[in-house]
Design a binder for these strands. Structure first.
Length: 210
DNA sequence: TACATGATGCCCT
DNA sequence: GGGCATCATGTAG
């Protein structure tokens, strides 16, 4: 039943603005188990969110918003529920969603997903071969990987309203609730590296390593 | 204008 | 487990 429902994107409702108008830590916890959806010509991409990280505003040295508004990070200071996409290491796009009311900076980084539908398209976008031995984790386990699998770029998706029914990129709730959630330090940062702001679905095999 | 660096992933050992 | 590609961005000069 749940799978049949997901086959029709018109029946999937984006999470409302209120969902994101909260502290990034609360949004992070509640995003676990939700579904990221991309509508595209070749079909629907869907995947369950299994790992995210919270980035706070001024009191978080690891956050892009820590030193104030810039041409790159302005989305974090705007309305909640908008995508913040940036390019890093000369290779990768990383996908976030803005949180807190307009004027307050904060966001959540998407670190890993569990693919549900559109797997062939994801494999194609990632340029990996999915034969019988292919590991699905290569598609969406890792922030750079999931962005590539979903075709997310700054040019195409930055500042996109994820709460709009017209959006080709949004997050929906299919009723799934994680059995258990774990909170750990964030991955790949040097500043404030010890703060427990990484949220994962305990035991999920699509959670990235670190 | 220059330069140091990064919320990563991949390949090699 | 370690090295490295590769470039947009921010900050200093």
């Amino acid at each position: 039943m749940r799978i049949a429902k997901n086959r029709n994107s018109r029946s999937m409702v984006p999470l409302p603005r209120d969902f994101y108008t909260r502290d990034p830590r609360a949004v992070s916890r509640d995003l676990l188990g939700k579904i990221l959806v991309r509508r595209q010509r070749r079909g629907l991409l869907t995947a369950r969110i299994v790992e995210v990280e919270a980035y706070l505003g001024q009191d978080d040295p690891a956050a892009h918003s820590h030193r104030g508004r810039t041409p790159r990070n302005f989305v974090l200071f705007g309305p909640p529920g908008l995508s913040y996409v940036y390019f890093i290491y000369g290779n990768h796009y990383l996908f976030n969603v803005s949180c807190l009311p307009d004027g307050e900076a904060g966001g959540v980084l998407f670190r890993a997903l569990e693919p549900i539908s559109g797997i062939a398209q994801m494999a194609d976008a990632r340029d990996v071969v999915m034969d019988g031995t292919g590991d699905l984790r290569k598609l969406t386990s890792g922030p750079g990987r999931l962005a590539e699998a979903f075709g997310i770029t700054r040019e195409r998706d930055n500042e996109k309203d994820l709460t709009s029914p017209k959006s080709d990129l949004f997050i929906t709730d299919d009723g799934f609730r994680p059995r258990r959630i774990e909170i750990t330090p964030r991955i790949g940062i040097t500043k404030a590296a010890e703060r427990p702001l990484r949220y994962i679905i305990a035991g999920n095999r699509f959670v990235s390593r670190g």
